[in-house]
């Protein structure tokens, strides 16, 4: 069976992000880029499905600038078979909807049975793209999945979705779209052999015109990117633990009115 995984390249979580000169985006200088952590769960799960079935193909796809090829190479080194890079200046300012439309178009061309996404990309933290792709494709979808089992005849998948207060187990006919939540698996690290092998694997560049996508104005625009307002300085309660505990409880009640 053919599986597509959508991955996004994002700044490393520990990187300090600085606001760029236009106050609308970040300053790319000095940033370390990684595969968004939830997308690693997605890649891992796709590889496991293929390994368990003993056949199939895992195709990773990203939309992003030239540097995003690094993210694709990481996934190829993990074990994905080939990669597609939606790489066109036309997508420079793409919002979630434009990204979703492009991903849906390439997925339609590939015709997989299963598509994995991350729960959210940890740069814009939107958590929308997987569901929007499902809508454009007209497929069922389930987000924040914690477990997944493809039926032996590849006609459906059983998933556990994390919801408030528990899990919901659903049977979904294929093709469908799933988004990975932490807990689904433990992603593997690329091995040296994997990294060497990845160099020979295909990364195909795709332009907007190849997908028959015309110009499409953004639906959202950034007014400004801002730093966090400073928090008022905190109070360290020192002294004997018993006295500190007493004072904390009093402050929470009388000053902060939090209890």
């Amino acid at each position: 069976m053919k599986i597509v995984v959508a991955v996004k390249q994002v700044p490393d979580t520990a990187t300090q992000v600085k606001i760029g000169a236009d106050s609308k985006g970040i300053d790319p200088a000095g940033i370390t880029w990684i595969v968004s952590p939830y997308d690693e769960f997605a890649v891992e799960e796709a590889l496991r499905v293929k390994e368990k079935r003993g056949d199939g193909e895992v195709v990773v796809v990203t939309l992003g600038p030239e540097r995003a090829k690094e993210a694709l190479r990481t996934c190829l080194a993990m074990g994905a078979d080939r990669a597609i890079h939606l790489n066109d200046p036309a997508w420079e300012a793409a919002d979630s909807l434009a990204v979703s439309r492009a991903l849906a178009a390439v997925i339609r061309q590939e015709g997989p049975q299963l598509v994995f996404f991350g729960r959210q990309a940890i740069d814009d933290d939107m958590g929308a793209v997987s569901t929007q792709v499902a809508e454009f494709l007209g497929w069922p979808c389930a987000s924040w999945i914690m477990e997944e089992t493809v039926a032996a005849d590849a006609s459906s998948v059983r998933v556990a979705r994390q919801v408030e207060g528990g899990l919901e187990i659903f049977d979904i006919p294929l093709p469908c779209v799933l988004s990975a939540q932490k807990g689904l698996n433990e992603p593997r690290y690329p091995t040296l052999k994997g990294i060497m092998g990845a160099k020979k694997k295909e990364i195909r560049d795709v332009k907007a015109a190849d997908l028959g996508l015309g110009a499409d104005g953004p639906r959202l625009s950034v007014v400004a990117l801002e730093g966090l307002p400073p928090r008022p300085p905190g109070r360290i309660l020192s002294g004997e633990p018993a006295a500190a505990a007493k004072e904390l409880v009093r402050s929470l009640r009388e000053d902060a009115k939090a209890i």
């Binding site: 909807l97 939107m126 958590g127 569901t131 929007q132 809508e135 454009f136 994390q162 639906r219």
Partner: peptide, 23 residues
């Protein structure tokens, strides 16, 4: 921002062709 509505609003945005400000 709940398990149901985060999915509903994302799909709805795609269906209506409008922007979504999540979270």
């Amino acid at each position: 921002v709940t398990s149901r509505q985060r999915e509903l609003l994302a799909r709805l945005a795609a269906r209506l062709g409008v922007g979504l400000a999540a979270d």
